[in-house]
Write a protein that binds this DNA or RNA. Sequence first.
DNA 1: TTGTACGCGTTATCAA
DNA 2: TTGATAACGCGTACAA
Lengths: 359, 359
Amino acid sequence: MSVTMQDIAKKVGVSRTTVGYILNNKPISSQITDETRERVLEMAKRLNYRTNQIAISLTRNKTKTIGVVFTNARGTFMNEILEGIDHVVHQHGYNISLCISDDDWRREARHIQMLREKRVDGMIVFFVSCRRGEKINHDHLLEVKKDGIPLVFIDRYLPDTDIDYVVTDDFGGSYEAVTHLLKLGHKKIAHITIPLDCTSVRNRLEGYKKALIDAGIEINEEYIKTADFSKNDGSKYGGYEITKDFLKMEKERPTAIFTVIDGIAIDAFRAVKETGLSIPEDIALVGFGNDERLSHLEVPLTVVEQPKSEIGEKGAEILINKIENPGTKEVKKIAIKPELIVRQSCGAKNGMVTAGTIS
Amino acid sequence: MSVTMQDIAKKVGVSRTTVGYILNNKPISSQITDETRERVLEMAKRLNYRTNQIAISLTRNKTKTIGVVFTNARGTFMNEILEGIDHVVHQHGYNISLCISDDDWRREARHIQMLREKRVDGMIVFFVSCRRGEKINHDHLLEVKKDGIPLVFIDRYLPDTDIDYVVTDDFGGSYEAVTHLLKLGHKKIAHITIPLDCTSVRNRLEGYKKALIDAGIEINEEYIKTADFSKNDGSKYGGYEITKDFLKMEKERPTAIFTVIDGIAIDAFRAVKETGLSIPEDIALVGFGNDERLSHLEVPLTVVEQPKSEIGEKGAEILINKIENPGTKEVKKIAIKPELIVRQSCGAKNGMVTAGTIS
DNA sequence: TTGTACGCGTTATCAA
DNA sequence: TTGATAACGCGTACAA
């Protein structure tokens, strides 16, 4: 099929070894006749010789490939992280092998099995978390770690394990967003969360609670609702429906809603608009994630922006460092502080409130 | 490092070959003692043996990996195509090696070189097109074709080459959008295009022109403008500025604007809104692509929707077919008819106008 | 059941 | 000095 060193050797009339020395510019090759070198190089060019990395991988036990696993490709969440990973990784001569698990942990496990068979040098994984009621097995992830294959989680992590990760500081971001609302005078701040059992969702809820507590406001469980599950009668109860319910609360009606993700904020926006109330005058609204759609709504939404590129870059750096320095036992657990992008839906004047990076 | 067949063979006290036969369930293995088989299988499980696909790739000369090259990861254009590719490809046991060229053809060439060294079985490429003034070299793509490596282009193609591709029927989609506007009574329809020299942009312009001509309307060059280039004085002249200029045209002011991509439509939307005119009453607006943002604007935009998943799926199918049936010389050139999604910005009542698939 | 050779590049060793 | 030989890494295929 493709041109091998053997082909060149045969054509030129030297051994495979000699060709190898010349093409790789080995010190020994300085002792090879200039004429031989010339002929070999020329033949290589003429035949369009191309290193066979498969052969190299076999001997070196290194593929220069890293596996990247995402749950899905909806929205632009994956994109920015992927771009971050791509930049760092290619700089170091690595390739990305991308897998999408479709929010199915069995698929995820199969993908990881494939990546292991292909002997990737390491993996960056955004793993599947369980939705209400599901049972999820994470053994395939723990096994990767156990077998000493460099592994870095992104955006969420497995508590009680010593696996490296790079995540958004969800607690901090949430805390800041709610504190921002408090400073604007809001006291009745609702939170819409989702039935997804992962660290980010939990930490955002905790950040919300802590901010209220620190401000001396009692947690009102009526103000915390979980979207996207079915009621007994089978009807959907998502961000839209929940918001409608919040708006019906009359005197106790919240004056601000903080949603755990952008998608829910869009639903809430629609609900508020339909009710004839206005944002931010009647209801302030803050999302989390910074989906592109949010800035194009009639009233651009204020959001906590996940530092996606940084997550990707940092994750890749940690991974490559692990790969190239196999001794290190140190486990990196990094939470990057997100930015609060103040637009119009919270009622503050436009601007950006920035915080530094903690780890 | 990892467990090999040799390890198992040594532990069990049989030859490497025997282990291979048993693990791969070869017919010959039926003549192996049940006891030996048991012991081998158990040892494999105990040691957590995992096939080394690198070794297999070396002998088979097949990596079961396909290279996918995109220009960038902005927006959700890549995502849907990628999901389509991913589904088809994994079904056939292939992995994706993803590269992002950052709109830089030299980077693209380097990526393709890497993919070739890693001996991918085929490639799906969304290649870099030239912007005004740039010089782009496509030799690296032609070489892939020349060397017999299965290659499929997506969303754009190189005219005058016999390389397979799957694209949007840009001409048809454009034609349909403009015809739709004509049917709504518009006669002064403007088109904003971009200075990108690729088949899709050119074909959309042609579709626009043909629709007008077929309706007996003369092409008014004043109504065709190219966004995103600098004027002599250095100021930017993008979709926003162009739209403002259109709106200043008084009597000759266009009543509808059709933009070559969604991004420009958003700019145009902003310009119209600022001018105090309303959509669709004063100005109808139609985009191309179906970016998620468009449906969340105050007035949801009517768009020609690129069939992204289909492009990905079809592209992957063609590629895998080429890989697994190496004889076929047939070149597939497929244009998938897009859908016109009628929302509010064109002034028609909501609904979807669908067309079939042509090829 | 086992030995042997192959695919391809690398490298330590050995001969001219 | 200049170059060739052989073995390695791992799974597979075929003859023995």
